[in-house]
């Protein structure tokens, strides 16, 4: 258990020390109003994510991992603490962060091209067209530019969502269980794809998942969260070179150690009522 008491106002580092894409998370606590008073979603979260780093946050449902991601995205602002991007506290959503959700959340009335373009602010037309083309190519959908979302498979829709999140050249890409609703084979392909995209773009990536293997396959560091209250249990570096072999002995060992963190008898989460489980 990380037990920390800190004065977050004094510990905010000087912004000039950062390269672009540093996420600094210091959350004392975050609560939601529930039917029986306040529900504590997160406590004592201290995490610094380096520029260009790939971090996976793993946890069971109700551990607050999505809440943590939504705080970084600027979608949740009511909490005690400070979350900063490159030294600037995050007060709301911004184009410096791209977000991909579990559902693709594409606009059914727009083509692939226009869905991707949705993520762009005003630009000269030529530059705009170039950027859109670049990101559609990057996610491998060149031939589907003028298709509509209902004509795409789940994996393709998620690619469009990734292109939309990246097209504004954000410093951080935030992914909330992006592959959870895909079938196993598509999921594995998308995991390779996200690595390829990350290597091409070199943005900081924070990916939330409940899939331990996915986390170990992708991440530079795996952040393991525990439930009730949601907090960081352990941060595990994965030093393996990429592409990683899921059957590799070291891979299996790391996967097992993450697994053991979850099923450590001392930390098995008590059963909680459904109301608090929705906070995942």
């Amino acid at each position: 258990m990380i037990k920390l008491i800190w004065n977050y106002e004094n510990t905010m580092p000087d912004s000039s020390l950062f390269r672009s894409g540093t996420v600094d998370v210091q959350i004392a606590h975050k609560a939601f109003a529930g039917s029986q008073g306040k529900l504590l979603a997160l406590t004592n979260i201290l995490l610094t994510i380096d520029p260009g780093e790939f971090v996976c946050i793993v946890g069971g449902s109700g551990c607050g991992k999505t809440t943590l991601l939504r705080i970084i995205a600027g979608l949740e602002t009511d909490y005690a603490g400070v979350v900063a991007l490159d030294g600037t506290p995050i007060t709301g959503p911004g184009l410096d962060r791209g977000v991909v959700f579990q559902e693709h959340r594409l606009f059914s009335w727009l083509t692939v091209h226009d869905n991707v373009a949705f993520g762009l602010s005003r630009l000269p037309p030529a530059e705009r067209a170039l950027k859109i083309r670049h990101y559609i190519n990057l996610v491998g959908l060149n031939d589907f530019e003028y298709e509509y979302p209902h004509q795409l498979s789940g994996g393709m829709s998620q690619r469009v969502a990734i292109a939309r999140a990246l097209v504004g050249s954000p410093e951080v890409l935030l992914l909330d269980e992006p592959f959870a609703s895909l079938d196993a084979l598509t999921r594995m392909r998308m995991q390779q794809e996200i690595l390829r995209i990350w290597e091409a773009e070199r943005t900081t990536v924070v990916l939330v998942t409940h899939d331990i293997e996915e986390a170990v396959y992708l991440a530079d560091r795996v952040v393991i969260m525990s439930t009730q209250p949601g907090t960081i249990k352990k941060i595990l570096p994965v030093g393996l070179p990429r592409p990683r072999d899921r059957a590799d002995r070291e891979f299996v060992r790391i996967r097992k150690s993450v697994h053991d963190e979850f099923f450590d008898p001392g930390t098995i989460a008590p059963m909680v009522p459904n109301g608090s489980r929705s906070v995942s």
Binding site: G74, L75, P93, G94, R105, F118
Partner: peptide, 9 residues
């Protein structure tokens, strides 16, 4: 979907 709109300010 509205949340996506918020993301893009």
């Amino acid at each position: 979907l509205l949340e996506v709109g918020r993301l893009y300010r």
